[in-house]
Nucleic acid binder design. Structure first.
Lengths: 158, 158
DNA sequence: AAACTTTCTGCGACTCAGTCGCAAGAACGG
DNA sequence: CCGTTCTTGCGACTGAGTCGCAGAAAGTTT
């Protein structure tokens, strides 16, 4: 039933279901990695060949507004794209490795406590929480030591 | 001496100082709010009228790479821009209000503990930590209740 | 199942942040 | 003040995302 989650949610809100929306939603839900709008379009077009870029963006906008998906930057490791994932129970943290591009997810009760503290202390009503960390995964961490000073003088990427 | 911080940092790394870089750096440092590349260009041009867009982006890239400034999204409240701020001792959290656009900063020992936990547990070497929350500030929080269901059917913005 | 209202889609043109190659110009060590 | 090396401005370009519109579907009504 995990798979009908988003669809049901839309129906219950009285949102019109079209084959295009079904295609986009299906792709987001089956996705094994975080997809950007472009990949989403390519994959969904296999189910609905006439699907247009604009419709993908509009559907993303809709799902974002309904808080059914979350938007991520993943430290802009490869361009200024945005990535999307189905919203889950608890928020999780994304770790992005500058070395190999790996994305890892992480959950912690401390994160929930932190959000709770903010709600309480600042009186802020949290709707979206995005915590992204950039750095080096264990493998790349040992590998990149010593390359620092040089890099400064060469390419200024990211 | 807060004001010479970035400049000194560059000199000590053997980075060449140009009037353009001085202008951009000065603006970032004096800024009272978070500036995007466009505003940065406008303001820095008052000090260095010939300054070009490309140079601003290159300088931002340089400062980012040297980890002297941080890049923020501020929940993309007004377009897909990026915002910049001078890096401070401890990382802080940004709260962005969907209602009035206000940006508030927040610090908490819990945040540091969370990062420490990630470093320890996941073996991840954190270089950049970005925590942004979107929601409603105290004022807007009380004001927007009840407008939810309608919004769904109208404009799909943000 | 036809008719009808409302909402959605594809299209094409557009906007806007950010990038790139290049030739001219500036930094700073000698 | 000279020469090497790095930086800049310029203009053209890329690529994500948006918008208005006319035609096409969704869901409802009879």
């Amino acid at each position: 039933m995990q798979r009908r989650q988003l669809l049901d949610e839309l129906v219950s809100k009285g949102i019109r279901l079209t084959s295009q929306r079904r295609a986009v939603i299906s792709v987001i839900q089956e996705a094994k990695s975080h997809l950007d709008a472009g990949s989403l379009l390519d994959l969904a077009r296999r189910l609905e060949p006439s699907l247009d870029r604009a419709t993908v963006y509009r559907t993303i906008g809709l799902l974002k507004k309904l808080r059914l998906i979350d938007e991520l930057d993943l430290m802009h490791l490869e361009g200024e794209k945005h990535y999307y994932e189905v919203r889950t129970e608890g928020d999780h943290i994304h770790l992005a490795c500058f070395g190999c591009g790996m994305i890892q997810e992480f959950t912690s009760p401390l994160f929930d406590r932190l959000k709770e503290e903010i709600t309480r202390t600042a009186g802020f009503e949290i709707r979206v929480a995005r915590l992204e960390l950039g750095g080096f995964c264990p493998k790349c961490s040992s590998r990149h030591r010593g390359e620092e000073e040089e890099k400064t003088k060469t390419s200024v990427k990211h």
